[in-house]
Every structure is written in C-alpha cells, then in structure tokens.
Amino acid sequence: MTEHQPIIEIKNLWKEYGANVVLEKLNLRVMAGEFVSIVGASGCGKTTFLNLLLGTEQASRGDILLDGQPFDPEPSVERGIVFQKYSVFPHLTAIQNVMLGEEFGHSGLGSLLTGRLTGSAKRDARDRAMAMLEKVGLVQAANRYPSELSGGMQQRLAIAQALLKQPRILLLDEPFGALDPGIRKDMHSLIRELWQEQQLTVFMITHDLSEGFELGSRLWVFDKPRIDPQAPERFGAQVTFDIPLNKPGEKQRQFDLVRQSATLASGASSEVQP
C-alpha cells in the first residue's frame, strides 16, 4: 500500500430508491488510520451510507473502492461491524462469541462442514479469543451469556468479536446510543485506545454531535444542501462539512459552526432515538 492510496475511495456515489434520492454525488477519500465520525439529522442517509459500506445495499451509481478494488456486494471479513444492539449471539458465551470468527474463517474441512474447530486449532482460537477479551476487559465474563452482561459489556464483546477478524475498516452504527452517559465515557476511551493501538480505520455513525467531535479524527456532516419544499425526496444528502479534527483549538470553533448550521441544529436537537 502506497502513501497516497486511500483505503476507501468513493467516486461519484448515488443512492436512489425510485424517484427518492437519498445520497447524491459523494466523492470522498479516506486514508488508512482515520477515524471518521458521521453525524446528520434523521433520514439524511447516514445509515444508507453505512449499509453501502457494509455491502447490504448497493449503490445506484458510482463506486466504493477498498484499497483500489471494488467491494464485495455482500458483507465480508474486510468490514467489521458493531450495531447499536443485536451484535452478539445470545446462545453463545462471551468467549464462544469471539471464537466464532476463528471457527468460521478456518480453512479446514471440519470448519467448513461444521463451523467448529477441534484439538490444537481450537486451543489456539481460544487463546486468541481470550487475548481479545482481555483487551476489552471482559476476561472475568468469558463464560457468561450475553443476557447476563450489561449493555456496555455487550458492546465491548461486539467490538472484540469484530476486531478478532482484523477488518480493514471497522463500522460502528451508533454503538453507544443505548448506553448510560458514564458507561459511554468508558467506551469512548476504550475505542480510542483500540483505534490507536491497532491502527484501525473507523467509520462511526452517531446522533450525538459532541461524541462525533470527541472521538473522530475527521467529521462528516450529512445534510441536504438543496431542498425542494414541494418534493423533499427530489434531492439527496451530501457531506456538507468535512472537518479534520486533529488540529487542537480548531475543535470548538468548528463545533459551534456545525451547530449553527440551520438544518442540522434543528434535526439534531429534535432527533429522538427510535
């Protein structure tokens, strides 16, 4: 990988559902190691954008390139995902949840047929899974089922599960939206640590503007620059602000700027979690 090769390159990307334009004319480049926070009002297409990155939806026009290559049209190991909920498997204990990725990825016939490992391969997988649980601070809970874990612990588990596969990009879909403020703070420091330690490239959707500013190295605001009051679905959203966040001192000024942006401010403050 050369210095100038972006990990994700988005070229003239459009997403339409019939006459309803959701995203229009997106042209973006993301370098490896960036942490992109994505904010925007409800219904502005940030989830659609994430689904395009994830591969559960396909672009109407344009391309998304990963390391210069077109994406698989379905979810794959290059992309790790943590959803707001339902990211972990309720029938597996924490350690089994993390091991599942190892068991799936293994090239042996046994793994292909039964999705399980045996013998030394299983011990190795277990060790790696345990190391991953240690990173997210869940060793004590290794043998508990998700329903016995708190919301924050479940999200830690989901992160560990995703990181085990060493994805090229990590997608976070409002990962901390359902957590208490105190827990959320812990999760912020955890994800920041993991990001720096593992050199991850992260895309995080959030409805919390300050969270986006605090965590990311770059912030995208999705918004519709043009609105036809007679037909609001006529025009799609674009990235109206693309703010680098690694310059100290700039942050507050930019934060205020985005807050003042009329449509977002009204959207963001009135946005309620479904």
Binding site: V77, G80, G105, L113
Partner: peptide
Amino acid sequence: IKAQTLGGNSWQ
C-alpha cells in the same frame, strides 16, 4: 450480517 462479516458461509 455480523456472522457474515465474521467470515461465515451460508451453511456455517
């Protein structure tokens, strides 16, 4: 979706 990103094929 999560299972797919973990590399599982349909059968697994």
